[in-house]
């Protein structure tokens, strides 16, 4: 699996520099949304790697090599976790550096929540992308984000204040992320099809 992740890192390497620059700029601007967005956005990098794989039909070649199906599928999850984790870390470092000026401490809770949301997003979308390919999978991802936004706004309307639901959501997030991963990985293994 290490070789597969190494391959994806090589594939994404040129874009990583652009990503780093955007992360630095957005965290410098600050704001809850910016930090949250960066982490979830970076977790989507496996789809860029998958798009390159599809274009070169790498999946067909990989099926001939001594990789297991499990390695191929799991490597995409690990890559997503790594990207989201590194992005969250950079955000934290930037927030700490900015705290000298802003006098507000780095928001560990926000970054942990962002990372867990990124894990959830990966859990929902990776099985779709591995089954239907990047193009159709992205469409599925958009629909899921749209549905989540509707559910969120309905929840807010019924509860009134975001602070009222923030605590329970934060407490539930780690369990939700673990549970979703436990369901998502075997599902992705079942759905994986060489595109």
């Amino acid at each position: 699996m290490k070789a597969l992740i190494q391959k994806d890192v090589y594939v994404l390497w040129k874009q990583v520099r652009t990503f780093l620059l955007i992360i630095v700029i957005m965290t410098a601007v600050g704001g809850t949304f910016n930090n949250f967005f960066i982490v979830v956005w970076c977790s989507m990098m496996p789809y860029t790697a998958l798009a390159y794989d599809e274009r070169s039909h790498w999946g067909q070649l990989a099926a001939m090599m001594p990789y297991s199906r499990r390695d191929i599928v799991l490597s995409k999850y690990v890559l997503g976790w790594l990207c989201a984790g590194v992005a969250a870390l950079i955000c934290l470092v930037m927030q700490t550096a900015m705290s000298v000026v802003t006098k507000s401490p780095a928001n560990m809770g926000l970054m942990a929540a962002s990372f867990l949301m990124a894990v959830l997003a990966l859990d929902v979308t990776i099985p779709l992308v591995l089954r239907f390919g990047v193009e159709k999978g992205r469409l599925g991802f958009m629909m899921i984000v749209f549905a989540a936004a509707i559910v969120g706004s309905v929840l807010l309307e019924t509860t009134g204040e975001i602070q009222q639901v923030q605590g329970p959501i934060m407490a539930a997030l780690p369990f939700a992320a673990v549970a979703a991963t436990v369901v998502s990985v075997p599902l992705a293994l079942k759905l994986y099809r060489v595109n």
């Binding site: 391959k7 090589y10 594939v11 390497w13 040129k14 790697a49 390159y52 794989d53 274009r55 070169s56 039909h57 790498w58 067909q60 070649l61 001939m64 090599m65």
Partner: peptide
């Protein structure tokens, strides 16, 4: 087993 496939290559940025 060494395999060479027609039309299936390594990702293009490698």
């Amino acid at each position: 087993i060494g395999v060479v496939l027609d039309e299936a290559y390594y990702p293009e940025t490698l």
